[in-house]
Simulated scan of single mutants.
Amino acid sequence: MAQRTDTTTPRPRRSRPWPLCALVLGALAVMTACGADTADQSAPPGASGASDSGDAAASSVTRSAAHTGRTVPPASHPASSGSASRPVTHSASASVSSSATAAHTTGSRPGARRVCSTEQLRLSLGRKDVGAGNVYMPLVLTNKSTGTCTLTGFPGVSLLDSAGSAIGDPATRRGASRSAVSLAPGASASAMLHTLNEGTSDTPCRRAPARIRAYPPDSFSSMTVPAGSFRVCGGVFEVESVHSGKGA
């Protein structure tokens, strides 16, 4: 009997794709998670980092203030705001000081005296008096203004030649200072000049002056008047303090 040969071809097994799909889905999940991490890391540093730094700085300032016991000024108030008010204070002080100086100069303060200026005065010479080897001549100051002013103390007096140069030393003071003289408009005060008559002393006379220059008391401006016959002799040239009237 002939033996039958089995020629049937075996069927191949069908592949199952499910495990591969699971691997692909897992890989996609991992990539999504990594993308989220990358997005978080690429966030602008100013969003969270700046806030953390500001909070740390504020905490540091607060701890320092608590440690030292000092009050921390608000950041919105600049440190220069305090100094901005100081110039106003200095300006006010300067204004008060200027007002006080002006009041002292013009005599507008209560009880202050108004000093006669050279613009208010007229300078002249009185009558010369010669006796017992002495020569006296009053230097007269007349108030030509419309207001009352005062003179107190000694005038400064010197002799000038025709070129305006001084002849010898200025007059020295003689006697004590008198009380203040109040000059109403048109009133006069005088200061007596004193020297020696020629020949009274072995000291020769100075050369004859052309003019007499005088600085009224408390004044830095001078006035001049023709010297006339006045001449300094014997090494004596003196001036007394001002007193009321035109003198001798």
Rank of each mutant, 00 (worst) to 15 (best):
A50D: 13
G54H: 11
T105V: 14
P87C: 07
L123T: 04
S48I: 13
T62K: 13
S85M: 11
E119C: 03
P87E: 00
G111C: 03
S76W: 13
S81P: 03
A112W: 11
R113M: 07
S81G: 13
P74L: 09
T118H: 05
S81T: 12
T106I: 05
P78H: 11
T71R: 10
A66C: 01
L125P: 00
D55T: 14
S99T: 00
S93C: 01
H104W: 07
G54I: 13
R63Y: 09
G82C: 02
V88M: 05
A94F: 06
H104Q: 10
D55V: 11
A112Q: 12
Q120H: 08
E119A: 15
S97N: 12
S64G: 14
E119I: 03
H90D: 06
H77S: 11
S53M: 11
R122K: 13
P74V: 09
A66I: 07
Q120V: 04
G111S: 03
T118D: 04
S83A: 14
S59Q: 11
V61Y: 14
A112K: 03
E119V: 05
S91E: 04
G111D: 02
S93Y: 00
V96Y: 01
D55S: 15
A94K: 07
G126E: 00
A94E: 03
A50N: 12
Q120C: 03
L123V: 05
R113V: 14
L123G: 04
S83F: 13
R109K: 07
S64N: 12
S48E: 10
A75Y: 14
D52S: 15
V88D: 09
S108P: 02
P87T: 07
S108D: 03
R63I: 11
G111Q: 01
Q120T: 12
G111T: 01
P74R: 09
S48M: 08
S117M: 10
D52M: 09
L123M: 04
A56D: 14
D55F: 11
S64V: 14
T68L: 08
S91N: 11
S53N: 11
S59L: 12
H104T: 08
C116N: 01
C116G: 01
S93I: 03
A84H: 08
G46V: 13
P78Y: 10
G82F: 12
L125K: 02
A84G: 10
G69K: 06
T101H: 11
S53T: 14
T106W: 02
T62Q: 13
L125D: 00
A66W: 07
L123S: 02
H90K: 09
A103C: 07
S93L: 04
P74I: 02
L123C: 02
D52V: 13
S48C: 00
S108K: 06
V72C: 06
G126S: 04
P110T: 07
S80P: 00
S76N: 12
P110L: 02
